[in-house]
Write a protein that binds this DNA or RNA. Structure first.
Length: 405
RNA sequence: GGGGAGAUUCCGGAGCGGCCAAACGGGCCAGACUGUAAAUCUGGUGGCUCAGCCUUCGGCGGUUCGAAUCCGCCUCUCCCCA
């Protein structure tokens, strides 16, 4: 496809667009647009839509944002569409259930945090942010009907998520059929050159391309990035509890990356979530996977917390790996209500919240999961009193506390 | 509007008068193994003053020596037909 006469500057940009990308519809069109952008000095308008349905971004979102950042550095214009109007519909992509629409108040509340967190990756000062209520609120009912006339029911229903829901007799709100059209209309309104989305977004992205063509514009180029999975193999999502959030402290982030990424996904994570050159990634993967995993964790943690944060996270991680426990053990006070009394170990654990209940604590002790001052104690009624303080207590591999007076 | 099915411990889902704190699977916790991974194996998974006791099976009331299991009412879900 890339002809031998392809301008090297165009080729270089194409490489950025291509890294980790799944769909690119169509590559030759993109080459042409890049070439013309270079010739005229006019940046491409690159659209990315976000639903302000949740305030907290996680590593899964970072895949797209990092791509946008790279594109931004090429000098193109990122247009972030805040889907405040579409959020009230709810994107049916990947959903098997009708989801409740959000109120305007919810949306406004999420928006600030949302944009703020995206700013950890994107240069927001160079990003155009548009709310799609800007044009949707201005539409009259006849405008809506005209837009709806642009698509057929069969075309909408052929979508896999709708097909599945029909088959499973799950409800599909009529309003949900509108979502792809609304998203597509955004592209028309901002005269979009290309739009990025997750692989689950391809259908929606293509609606934009079609609508633009129908409106006399050149249809946008569409490209998609993979969705990353959490440690449990499911799509990373806050509601599944498998997400690594942008705002997590360095150690947590580092540790979660190590624990989350299966060996089979290492290559993808490097490709999608770091800027380590592809050749270097290949070399890393040819070596010790353990080392590659730690490197990945450093790269990701470093991106969000800087080199110092990444280093401290790694040090902490290694300290724990050596079995030394956390560098800085949380202190808990001897429970005031038991001042001056001896307590059975199980009750002590529950009292300082190292276990949920006395019964829970008792079980842990009986399973050899509890260490006091580094030694396993298997007797749940072993008595401790304030004279024994301070006590370093550990339940399981990761929960530590120092009990003090 | 009419007809039917059902609500059980974190989830799914058995149980249909005593042997039920309630099978089984998932999840989760812990132990072994390990790369604090994955996979695997083992144990655990209502509470407590823990070889025993106490409180649970949508809610309220009833039958019974005894109810998650039977009866009545209530609340909420789902399905089919229109």
């Amino acid at each position: 496809m890339a002809s031998s006469t392809l301008d090297p500057r165009v080729a270089a940009q194409m490489a950025v667009f291509r890294r980790g990308t799944v769909d690119l519809i169509e590559a030759p069109e993109l080459e042409a647009r890049i070439a013309s952008s270079l010739a005229t000095g006019k940046p491409l308008r690159v659209k990315f839509g976000m639903d302000p349905t949740s305030a907290d971004l996680h590593v899964g979102h970072a895949v797209q944002l990092l791509k946008l950042r790279a594109i931004q550095e090429l000098g193109h214009q990122i247009v972030l569409i805040v889907g405040d109007a579409t959020a009230m519909v709810g994107d049916p992509s990947g959903r098997n259930k009708l989801r409740p629409p959000l109120s305007r108040a919810d949306i406004d509340k999420n928006l600030a945090t949302y944009v703020d967190q995206a700013g950890k990756v994107l240069d927001m000062s160079r990003t155009e942010v548009r709310r799609n209520s800007e044009w949707f609120d201005a539409m009259r009912f006849e405008d809506v009907l005209r837009l709806l006339g642009r698509a057929t029911v069969a075309r909408m229903l052929e979508r896999d998520t709708f097909e599945k829901r029909m088959a499973e007799r799950e409800p599909i709100g009529v309003h949900e059929l509108l979502y792809p059209l609304m998203q597509g209309w955004d592209s028309v309104m901002i005269r979009c050159d290309l739009e990025l989305g997750g692989t689950d977004q391809l259908f929606n992205l293509l609606r934009g391309r079609d609508l633009q063509a129908q409106e006399g514009q050149v249809g946008q180029v569409c490209f998609t990035m993979p969705l990353v999975n959490g440690g449990d193999g499911r799509k990373m999502s806050k509601s599944y509890g498998n997400a690594i959030g942008f705002l997590e402290p360095p150690f947590d982030m580092f540790q979660k990356v190590v624990k989350t990424v299966p060996d089979t996904a290492l290559a993808d994570w490097f490709l999608l979530l770091t800027r380590v050159p592809e050749a270097e990634v290949a070399a890393l993967l040819a070596g010790d996977h353990r080392a590659a995993q730690l490197r990945l964790a450093r790269e990701i943690t470093g991106f969000f917390h800087g080199p110092a944060g990444a280093t401290s996270a790694r040090d902490e991680y290694e300290r724990r790996a050596r079995g030394e426990g956390p560098g800085d053990v949380e202190e808990r006070r001897w429970p005031a209500e038991h001042a001056g009394k001896a307590l059975p170990l199980a009750n002590l654990l529950a009292a300082v919240k190292l276990a949920n209940t006395n019964s829970d604590a008792r079980r842990l002790v009986q399973q050899n999961a509890v260490k006091v001052n580094g030694l396993v104690v298997a007797d749940p009624v072993a008595a401790y009193s304030e004279a024994d303080l301070p006590l370093l207590v550990q339940t399981g591999k990761a929960r530590f506390a120092r009990i003090v007076r």
